[in-house]
Design a protein around this nucleic acid. Sequence first.
DNA 1: CGAACTTTTGATATCACTCAAGGGACGTGG
DNA 2: CCACGTCCCTTGAGTGATATCAAAAGTTCG
Lengths: 264, 264
Amino acid sequence: MAAELERPAAQASCSTNPLIRKLDKFISLGPQDQLTLDHLCRHRRSIEANATLMHENARLSVVFVVLMGVAYRYRLLADGRRQILGYLMAGDMCDADFIISDRCDHSVGVLTDAVVAVIPIPELKSAIARCPRIGDGLVLASQSEEAVLRRWLLNVGQRHALQRIAHFLCEMSAQLHTAQCLPAGSLSMPLTQHELADTMGLTVVHVNRCLQRLRDEGLIAYGRKRVTIVDRDRLLQIEGPAARATVEPAVQRADELNVAGVSA
Amino acid sequence: MAAELERPAAQASCSTNPLIRKLDKFISLGPQDQLTLDHLCRHRRSIEANATLMHENARLSVVFVVLMGVAYRYRLLADGRRQILGYLMAGDMCDADFIISDRCDHSVGVLTDAVVAVIPIPELKSAIARCPRIGDGLVLASQSEEAVLRRWLLNVGQRHALQRIAHFLCEMSAQLHTAQCLPAGSLSMPLTQHELADTMGLTVVHVNRCLQRLRDEGLIAYGRKRVTIVDRDRLLQIEGPAARATVEPAVQRADELNVAGVSA
DNA sequence: CGAACTTTTGATATCACTCAAGGGACGTGG
DNA sequence: CCACGTCCCTTGAGTGATATCAAAAGTTCG
């Protein structure tokens, strides 16, 4: 399911270690910190698309850091329903709560082919002990993830399907664009409508109809396993189902006009 | 809105500082740590029910720790919808992400009259520097909160109203019973149906009807501003709307039997 | 070219929301 | 102590948003 391969020097897109780039957004790392992080990431493993990287309740002695590709956290219900709990991009650590227990409360899968660094937990702990800023950075990263979870909960709990999808796409665009060194604005994400549905607490069918509407209004584009933002600003202004009122009544009015024209 | 009062020695219910009790669940604190924590909590403020303790986007130079009463995190949408993001009991810290920025991404209100400790952030930081275990404890507490957020997201995203409420109540019962030194099993919570609704992403009306059903089946009891769990085990086994199938079809079958009886 | 997956579409069912109003508990002030 | 307002809970009718079911069309891949 996952081929092992050692690539001591191979580097991801941007010429720096993604983990370093990620932590550097939260705290300034010294040269020693960076060396340590690079050294931590020396064991690599490539994972094929759709594989499971980590199972809920599994006991792990290592943590993973995504170096390439996109992974996602999720939990399953007894009847098979799945809630996706977050996406992991380059630099994100799979098991942020490795400290609190060696068990994990959720699973992690990968969307695309991915490469992860495999870090033994004891080694990570000793690195933190030697370089406190690394620990600080990880804590900050974990707290920023907590903030994302709060935004998602707000989104799923309070917004209607259309707004919900719109907001989610914008948020992901932001996350992708800071994770990689990419331009903002229009951005694309390797997402199946099924995954979108499980992220938003909606049905595939309903997600599909919403996406069509967003596409018809020129706000997004999408195709096989990929959603692209076309007009981020207008996407954020999407109103809920009330927006339907701007479409349907128009048809009725046309009929009325017809009648009026005939009678005139 | 909030009267200031200094109570240098007054202690909460259990003879110990709630913050110490809380952190002690995650990490073992030395005598020095405990002294430091006690000292940190020396400034107290009492808040009246329904007051707002902290506003979204406010810039704060202090953090609050709930000593008595229940507070809750929430966010508002432009149109007034509110999502409750978590409940804070004795020992919980209001602004867990005080490190990441001095701004907060959500507001905090109190349900009941409450007493909080007010800790200046610089003082907290220096305490952490002196007693690293305090910092560790806070990090662990924050990660346990992240786990709660994931459970909530699963709940709101995937479960139907009835299951959703049932699971939430059980989870709160667990949280309350570890926060205070209370017996498990049946427990009660000072919650308005309005707050329940905003927690679960449902409407007050719909929450009301669900609660009635749960009460009629003898799983919970409730009254003015209070929900009580009667039968925790059965509550956790609640099925979704499919449970209706155990009631309605019975009526139809009765009719069929009637017809059969007539024709026989 | 078939198998598996993703996206579409239509018809129908139903969960949950909206609107509207009434009743009960509690607090307050006369 | 009663009258009143407010907040919380309750109820009903009607609507709407989303789910469910079923099936077809387009893609990718072997």
